[in-house]
Nucleic acid binder design. Structure first.
Length: 650
RNA sequence: GCGCCCGUAGCUCAGCCGGAUAGAGCGACUGGCUUCGAACCAGUAGGCCGGGGGUUCGAGUCCCUCCGGGCGCGCCA
């Protein structure tokens, strides 16, 4: 509703400026600095001042006096040096919201959007850095879907890479385990992804002491690529089991996927060979005849490097004929846009509890009809900012193939790393140097096995939340208390990962993450629960929710919204879609989180200032109840976009 | 060396395309529970928006420069 009025205001202003001054301006609308100034501010007089050589204030006065009437607008006021502040017709606005005239705006670009996120090496348990990736990606997907965009969620699985090979080295060469023994571990007491977490760290440190052991890695990689031998079989076993573990971990946070494209199929279905041909034909890469890259197929550094002076070329195919990670990524990116002329086969990996199906790539033609994936019109790759150089190379590859539109629509949705606060390092028993102790944060290393595992963190959050829930609701069933505690824990975690903008390094701190007060997920959840409590209490008293549409006429709305308090509250609550759209445009899920927090603050204000149930005036009480229902719905909608549930009680 | 990111209240961070008096949470200090349950609310203190130049009607925001910090720059992924 807010958006529609904004569009209408901009349209009328633009048309009027064109006919009155013969100038075509893009009318931008702002939020007035102070809410008392009105709902929308139009600074168009400033834009015109230069062209017309007149004071902005004079132009603003002319515009305000002469602008054709807009039904949803009550009046225009000139303020400051030339702002035109717009005041909505409050009764009509409230009545419109009540009548459900929201109407989601149609997406500008109806094509399918692909969002790739999570993308964890399937060789060990997920850690908090992976959580930031998955939560950012998943929330962005929810934002896009909320705005009506069709979205496909991909989680790329590098099941044939060095990291998986290293764990196989650990099982096979260091521990002399057979396939059967590893299989037994998968169903064993200790979570398999935790077992691999430790083993991977051991293998990494073993390489440090015994560099000759790197031959084992080479042998294993070779076996994996050839698809033969016990190491290859073990690699599949390990990767598949770890993928299952990751999917379970992410499901706890409400993160689900549509398809898992795997590197093994990129290899077996010769995606690379196809891409290689295109790259060669179009001259995007060339065979280096001499120098340090002799015998390699390289991409010219000038194509992607920011360093104009002496750009280093990027090796795409090594002199031994094997393709690098970037090369494979170019092929994968081409597939995402439907530019490869090839597709995977798919098989169903599992069905989520809500019925959603998860598919995985395969190299075997299926006997039954399956969905198809890829061929998107816009691609977001949620990848940590440390890989921006490689992402630049991938985009340069598309450009070198003259897929300029697609290069334009390849978006590196980058974010900064999650480090640990020094305090949390000490808590985890990680040794710190004097220097580290003084830093605001300390980077952790998966190879050393240092860091916070995602499941450990979630477990700890649930235990902390459960203590609170138990103390407040000892009479409720244990199972339900656990469910509520889990919802609060996930709310806290998701909000924590979302409250920072993407290019801010998060210094993860247990104490902060475990907090449920202030600007946190539980604060927002609590507001929604409180709204629900009012309605629950109403029914307990034998009253029922009034027929709002029948009782709250536009006149009644106008009366109730005449006061500044209610009007500002309602206005804030009506802007969920505005906030989401703004967050999509700026690529910042944090903006939705911030909005949710402000919405909760607004409701807590309302809750504190206006006892709903004890209100004596009939119209006022009906209005307050409607506000309660409206707030609860808007809070729930915002939380839903953040991937956070509203518990039944708190 | 080159490139990218960051520097805003004691701490952690917001600040939309340059706009009106720079915001929030935490922490500190004062107050508020008669259950629509305080995981809350009200209030106080706290700022040369890293420094310096510029652009303009106007700069936390854009440009240049310096200082400080982080991250990249492999025939690893």
């Amino acid at each position: 509703m807010f958006q529609q009025i904004e569009q209408e205001v901009a349209r009328v202003f633009r048309a009027h400026v064109r006919s009155r001054y013969g100038a075509d301006v893009q009318v931008v609308l702002e939020q007035p600095k102070q809410s008392a100034f009105g709902e929308v501010a139009v600074p168009v007089a400033f834009q015109l001042a230069k062209q017309l050589k007149q004071a902005p204030r004079v132009i603003a006065q002319q515009l305000a006096a002469e602008l054709p009437a807009i039904p949803s607008i009550e009046k225009l006021e000139v303020a400051g040096n030339g702002y035109i502040n717009v005041r909505f017709h409050r009764g009509a606005y409230g009545h419109g919201l009540l009548a459900g005239l929201e109407g989601a705006a149609a997406p500008k670009d109806p094509g399918k959007i692909i969002v790739e996120h999570t993308n964890i090496n399937p060789n060990k348990a997920a850690h908090i850095g992976h959580l930031r990736n998955a939560i950012l990606g998943d929330t962005f997907v929810r934002m896009l879907r909320s705005a009506g965009c069709p979205v496909e969620v991909q989680n790329y699985i590098d099941n044939t890479g060095v990291q998986v090979a290293d764990v196989v080295v650990g099982f096979h060469y260091l521990e002399h385990q057979t396939i059967e023994q590893v299989r037994a571990l998968i169903g064993g007491e200790r979570p398999f992804d935790y077992v691999c977490w430790d083993l991977y760290a051991r293998v990494s440190s073993y390489y440090g002491d015994h560099p000759e052991a790197l031959a084992w890695r080479a042998e294993t990689l070779h076996a994996i690529e050839a698809g033969e031998g016990v190491q290859a079989e073990m690699a599949h076993l390990v990767a598949d089991a770890i993928v299952q573990a990751h999917i379970r971990t992410m499901l706890r946070l409400g993160v689900v996927y549509d398809v898992l494209p795997r590197e093994s199929e990129i290899l077996h279905l010769k995606f690379w060979a196809t891409a290689f041909e295109q790259l060669k034909q179009r001259g995007a890469i060339h065979l280096e005849a001499e120098g340090k890259n002799k015998g390699c197929w390289v991409m010219r550094g000038a194509a992607f490097s920011q360093d104009a002076e002496n750009p280093d070329d990027k090796v795409i195919v090594r002199s031994n004929g094997t393709v690098t990670y970037v090369g494979k990524d170019i092929a994968y990116q081409m597939w995402k846009f439907g530019l490869l002329g090839k597709d995977f086969y798919y098989s169903r990996l599992l069905t989520y509890p809500n019925g959603h199906e998860l598919w995985v790539s395969t190299d075997q033609a299926p006997k039954v009809q399956t969905p198809r994936f890829g061929a998107g019109s816009r691609v977001y790759n949620v990848i940590d900012s440390r890989q921006s150089y490689l992402q630049d190379v991938v985009v340069a590859g598309l450009r070198a193939l003259e897929y300029n539109d697609q290069a334009e629509r390849s978006i590196h949705f980058s974010y900064e790393m999650v480090a640990l606060s020094p305090r949390t390092c000490v808590q985890l028993g990680i040794a710190l140097s004097e220097e580290d102790r003084r830093r605001p944060y300390v980077e952790v290393s998966g190879r050393k096995g240092l860091g916070v595992k995602a499941d450990d963190l979630v477990n700890e959050l649930i235990e902390t939340a459960l203590k609170e829930v138990d103390s407040r609701h000892p009479e409720e069933p244990v199972e339900q208390r656990r469910r509520v505690a889990a919802q609060i824990a996930i709310g806290a975690l998701r909000y924590f990962m979302l409250k920072y903008t993407r290019n801010s390094v998060i210094a993860f701190d247990f104490q902060e993450a475990l907090s449920f007060e202030g600007e946190t997920g539980p604060y927002v959840q609590y507001a929604a629960v409180r709204a629900g409590n009012i309605l629950k209490k109403l029914e307990e008293r034998g009253e029922s929710v009034p027929d709002f549409a029948a009782e709250l006429t536009a006149d009644a709305m106008a009366r109730q919204l005449a006061g500044e308090d209610f009007w500002q509250l309602l206005l804030a609550a009506s802007k969920v879609d505005v906030a989401i759209q703004r967050a999509i445009d700026s690529g910042e899920p944090a903006h939705v989180a911030k909005y949710g927090f402000q919405l909760a603050q607004a409701f807590n204000n309302f809750y504190h200032g206006y006892p709903v149930l004890s209100e004596q005036n009939r119209e006022r009480k009906t209005f307050l109840l409607w506000m309660t229902v409206y707030f609860r719905n808007q809070l729930a909608k915002t939380l839903g976009v953040l991937g956070i549930d509203v518990p039944v009680y708190m």
